[in-house]
């Protein structure tokens, strides 16, 4: 197994239906970006890492333990994924931020913590605001705040800025990457912007046609 202390995820001969076929891939603990054309299997990799789906064949290790030997729900609570088109639950912004705490039977967060998470994603809204009044971009930021509040061991972000304009997109990614580095939490991110990927990542993994075709080291840590 290609593993060292810095390995977060190791994939060996992992395939998923006809979508993905990766002979070997190691993802480290820094900020990793998965880059590739539409339909190349980027989201499928994130879903495999989050255990929303399981490999058809092969082995997938997280911190040295094969994922099949762990509890899937506990794993999802540690390795939290932000979907590309996050779904909002009925109710207010506050209800949505606290929904995972209800699922995970954790104490509800007070308003000051909710507001601070909203500031992190530059969403200056009252937590009592109904979510159906938010635009697509605002919903995406709210979903990001929801994930940040969970303080996961690993962030999996699927196009975290796809509904935002370029300026907001970079600002949100920058804030999140800085926060993750400061807290020493690995980030695995899918993005369509190579500029953002180069600027903030330690490693860029390029995939095409469901196969990993290369890894490139970047200087994201300097930003």
């Amino acid at each position: 197994m290609e593993e060292n202390e810095n390995s977060l995820f190791v994939l060996i001969n992992v395939s998923y239906l006809n979508v993905l076929d990766i002979p070997s891939l190691t993802i480290g603990r820094g900020i990793t970006t998965i880059f590739g054309p539409s339909g190349s299997g980027k989201t499928t990799i994130l879903k495999l890492l989050n255990r929303m789906i399981s490999p058809s064949t092969g082995q997938l290790f997280f911190n040295g333990t094969e994922l099949r030997q762990t509890n899937p729900v506990q794993h999802r609570r540690k390795v939290v994924m932000l979907s590309q088109n996050p779904v909002m639950f009925e109710g207010s912004i506050g209800d949505n931020l606290n929904a995972p705490n209800i699922f995970q039977k954790r104490p509800l967060l007070d308003e000051s913590l909710l507001c601070s998470a909203l500031e992190t994603v530059r969403l200056g809204k009252d937590p009592a605001t109904p979510v159906n009044l938010l635009s697509g971009g605002e919903k995406q930021r709210l979903a990001l705040a929801r994930v940040i509040l969970l303080q996961p061991e690993v962030y999996l972000l699927d196009e975290p800025s796809s509904s935002l304009d370029d300026a907001s997109a970079e600002a949100v990614v920058e804030t999140l990457c800085l926060k993750a580095r400061k807290e020493n939490r690995p980030v695995i991110m899918v993005t369509h912007s190579k500029a953002i990927a180069r600027k903030y990542s330690d490693v860029i993994i390029t995939i095409a046609g469901g196969k990993s075709i290369g890894q490139e080291l970047c200087s994201g840590r300097d930003n």
Binding site: N50, M52, V73, R76, R77, V80, M81, S83, P86, V87, F89, A99, P100, I102, F103, Q104, R146, L150
Partner: peptide, 17 residues
Amino acid sequence: RQIVEEALILGATPREA
């Protein structure tokens, strides 16, 4: 279905989702 899936992603058990 999407709401159930989102709840699972956020750490809900199938019962909670």
